[in-house]
Design a protein around this nucleic acid. Structure first.
Lengths: 226, 226, 226, 226
DNA sequence: GATGAATGAGTGTTCATTCAT
DNA sequence: CATGAATGAACACTCATTCAT
């Protein structure tokens, strides 16, 4: 079996185990067993637990950002782009719960070394959102411009809300990615004030999404204890 | 030295160490040393690492909810109450960064046993926010009412945004609790849509806050490694 | 409360705990709690775990030898004396199971220091039995005399059989001290050879034993775990 | 070095240490050191102190029963079979004093879990002896038969006496397995009564035993303390 | 390329023992 | 006389990591 394939299997197993147990509680033994290889092979290919975790973070961070990037429909107005990006985001996190736990929960918990990996990904997403907000302000001929610091805070709040909603959607049965995205768009774009007076945000016209998107969220079987 | 005092010292040390290292990476040796006592005494008073962590969570969860409860100014309109509550929340988390890390990061990462403790606290806060949203809808004579499921999602998004902003404010120099609260109020209440057209939310008139609130945030010295 | 009484309470508790747990597994905490006193007091009166165990052994060894000595009816033939002594022995061990476990099981397991204490008691009993055998030989005008080494072995076998039967009687419901003694007398005095040909040993005439002897054996309540 | 061999080395060391120190006082460190391996390897192969002790008991119980079974000469009268079985028993216990201590002393002292392992072995031996007694009764045309309860007690007494004599022979210099067996046969078969009148039991004719049997008993060097 | 065999270093936890009061 | 407070030393157990083959 070629090395590249074996490596991906190991990373798959590692994401599963790290996602469910956390960095420290995960054991290399369990990862090797789940990957179906011997422990020395894991070390041969991936050097150390540290490096293995880093590799997981990198792979999953890239997968997530590419999923979002691919999901954003070009040519729409800023709110339409945000809407489509959020749908892609919630869909991806729902389908890869262990990866999401690794990125959002565990990677930020164990040392700067890992946190910076995630921070890079997050910064990319925040930058994308920041652009959208700025573009929206331009479209609205807002003058004077929103101060940059304010925009940074708004982008942070939006991304933070999205992350929390991803956790919530993952933990709450019956909440689909689409619903989560709609809730967030209402909340963020219209604002509670407008919602009170019956002026909600509504999604732009768009082509039908791919068939998988509305499918029930993949739920990875929990790892057996003992 | 009386037992009650020693116990609080131990909890102080434990929150520090758990907050910085995480549950698994924290060692009872380090906690005991930081508390200035021997390890057996920690076990005599707090039974086990598990129980010690639970005790930390309980104490800090209670401290946080009471800080928020005490910070909410009664008699104001819903947005005013939310505003004051958020200020208290950001102030408390900024002043107790390790406690906030324990509650928001580590407690949710290691087993249902701990997660439920935090979930109870969080549910209390979400319930408070839910009431505020409902009250705001009533005040606005909104008709028909917002569906309950939608309100739950909105409250979740608001609390999630607040939590993320607390992390962000803690990690970003120069962001005060007041600024974080203002950003979130703008984002959540006015919404990005209104912000684009220059209709931001603005804080209600209120008495001056206590002197400590604007003070520089206490930054616990990081624990030396090695 | 006078010191002597307190000391006896402590020894009572210690015998209970040592008997049920063994020397190493017994904890001074549990002994002190069962005795109803604080731990330092146990140390004040009895110095150390070692000394406490030794004190238990000495007290119970003396109690057992005195019970046997008091039970032997003087003026009888050797087999009658042996019979009455065995009855006293089985009665005492049945009524004091923890003490018997301490002496027979635990004291011989943990270091010469304790073993010699028990060996002294045992030597006394073996000497008594040796005398009986010699006396029986004299009564029977056995000539030439049994060699001394042979007598020592026989006494040892008899005492060993008695000890094992005490364990067996303690572990088997429905076996009384009297039955155990009768079985042993048959076995030892008549021998299997005679038993096969229908010539069992039978007890001599004797006055009624004290009322307590046939009573159900005291069963100390087992110590609660956890 | 292959696993099976290492495992036996570990069990050898464990029997030594458990036999000399007892279950609780034995430390895994000492066992590992005596076996010439590191502690983790002991755990890798034998799981836990509990399981290690159980493995020792099982191995030694099997070794003892097989030694006795192999030692019993078939085709002899009951007393001849008992005689040969006892010789094998005393020979085996004398050659494996630590194993005998584990089985007879320590395994019965620490929890039902271990006691049942030994009880199974003991039950097998008691059953064998019971058969012999019944066969002897049959040969002697004894009528009416000995009651079953009585036979159980006699077998118990015989086995108990054998066990105690094994301890005694192990502790007393100059007592060979053959002597111990002879003493017990005299005691048990002829009975003290007959011995007094000069009617001892005498061994049946048999082929010469193997050369090892009369050899000086192997005395394992005691483990150095400190 | 792949693994069975092996370990150094560290973890949570317990217990006999001692003071200051 | 009696105890609440405190600890040094040890133990069972685990894990990331490395060779020889």
């Amino acid at each position: 079996m070629p090395r590249a394939v074996r490596e991906q299997q190991m990373l798959d197993a590692a994401v599963r185990v790290f996602g469910q147990r956390g960095y420290m509680a995960a054991s290399m033994d369990e990862i090797a067993e789940l990957a179906g290889v011997s422990k020395p092979l894991v070390y041969l290919y991936l050097n150390s637990k540290d490096d293995l975790f880093t590799a997981c973070i990198r792979r999953e961070a890239r997968a997530l950002t590419e999923a979002v990037r691919a999901g954003v429909l070009p040519g729409l107005a800023p709110d339409g782009q945000l809407w489509s990006g959020l749908r892609a985001f919630f869909t991806h996190t729902a389908r890869n719960p262990d990866a999401w736990r690794v990125l959002h929960l565990h990677a930020r918990t164990h040392g700067e070394r890992f946190a910076v990996e995630v921070a890079a990904m997050r910064a990319e997403i925040v930058a994308f959102v920041t652009q959208l907000i700025a573009a929206a302000a331009r479209d609205a001929h807002r003058d004077p411009h929103l101060p940059a610091g304010e925009v940074a805070g708004l982008a942070e709040a939006l991304v933070g809300a999205a992350e929390s909603l991803a956790d919530w959607a993952g933990a709450t049965d019956g909440v689909t990615a689409k619903q989560a995205a709609a809730t967030l768009m209402n909340f963020a774009w219209a604002g509670l004030g407008d919602l009170m007076t019956g002026r909600p945000w509504s999604p732009p016209e768009e082509p039908e999404p791919g068939p998988g998107e509305a499918a029930p969220v993949a739920q990875a079987a929990p790892i057996q204890t003992g």
